Computed example of a mutant assay.
Amino acid sequence: MSSSPPIALLGTGLLGSAIGQRLLQRGLGLRVWNRHPERLQPLVALGAEACATAAEAVQPCRWVIAVLADGPACREVLLSAENLRWQGQRVVQMGTIAPETSRELAVALQRQGAAYLEAPVLGSRPEALTGTLQIMVAGDEQLFQEALPLLLALGPNPEWFGAIGSALDTKLALNQLIASLTHAFSLSLQLVQAAGVNVEQFMAVLRGSALHAPTFEKKLPRLLADDYRHPNFPTAHLRKDLLLFLASARQHGLDTMGLRCLADLLERARDTPLDQLDYSALHRLTGPVPPPADPAPPAAAPRSG
């Protein structure tokens, strides 16, 4: 294990746990915290030190990586955690949150004594485990240069995008494509299957065209098997990110009418088992809509007399 100061990891969900595993594999010391302590055990088994509170995890560390669920969780943990005192630590926030929330965090953390970078990633658990995440960074450029040795453990080419918010706007733009491409492919596949067209013939034409995208090949087996278990990126996260994109796009005066219907479709998965499945489970939402029930016949008029 490295003799350098350990790194604090706040949040050990699907992505956070993979980031932690990668850092441990690189010989870095790691102090880990999660609001659900049982989720720390896989990393503890690999050599991480479990901490009962975020403050305990952060206190002896220079670098803090936050991979928390959403903006409210970031505010709660980074700004309001009990006994948490910032003393010059560098916070690298890697979750997907609203750009405006990230700017608020940067200002608030600076006032409390910490430096801040946003560093959302393209990729999920497999890429984190192999150190091939695409990392987009925004914030102070000098701080980015200081963070590079740590970021290079997670991705081969971390890229600085400029002021706080710019990396997250880029991330949201990319995740909007995940949602839109998956939805478009699902609808097309639903149509050819409903029409009795041979799926492999359809795919052969698609592969030979400019319309083809690698994500279609990646998700096709799941869609054909209707098997969305073992997600790296669940439906609930896709919906969250799409709603964040819509909010940011509206702030910039963009017309989001066409995309709002996809958000409405994904709302149908909220609080259902689909939310925890792979996001390509939206294929279940694009299938044939049951016809409306026949209206009840009008009640017979009462007989007089």
Rank of each mutant, 00 (worst) to 15 (best):
E159Y: 09
F144M: 08
F185V: 04
Q145L: 01
A138T: 06
P158S: 11
N175C: 07
L181K: 00
A184G: 08
L152G: 02
S180A: 15
G155E: 11
E146V: 04
A184C: 06
E159P: 02
P149K: 11
F144N: 02
I178S: 04
L174N: 10
N175R: 05
A153R: 03
I164F: 14
L150N: 05
A179Q: 09
S180H: 04
Q145Y: 02
P156E: 15
L148D: 02
T170C: 12
D169R: 15
P149L: 06
G162A: 03
A179C: 14
V137L: 10
G139R: 07
Q142E: 12
I178P: 04
G139L: 01
L148Y: 09
S166R: 14
G139V: 00
W160H: 14
D140H: 05
P156N: 13
L150H: 06
L187V: 15
L174I: 14
L187N: 01
P156G: 09
A138V: 11
T182L: 00
L151V: 08
A173K: 10
I178H: 04
E146W: 02
G155M: 12
D169F: 10
A153Q: 12
H183L: 05
S186T: 00
E146K: 09
Q142D: 12
L152S: 02
L154K: 14
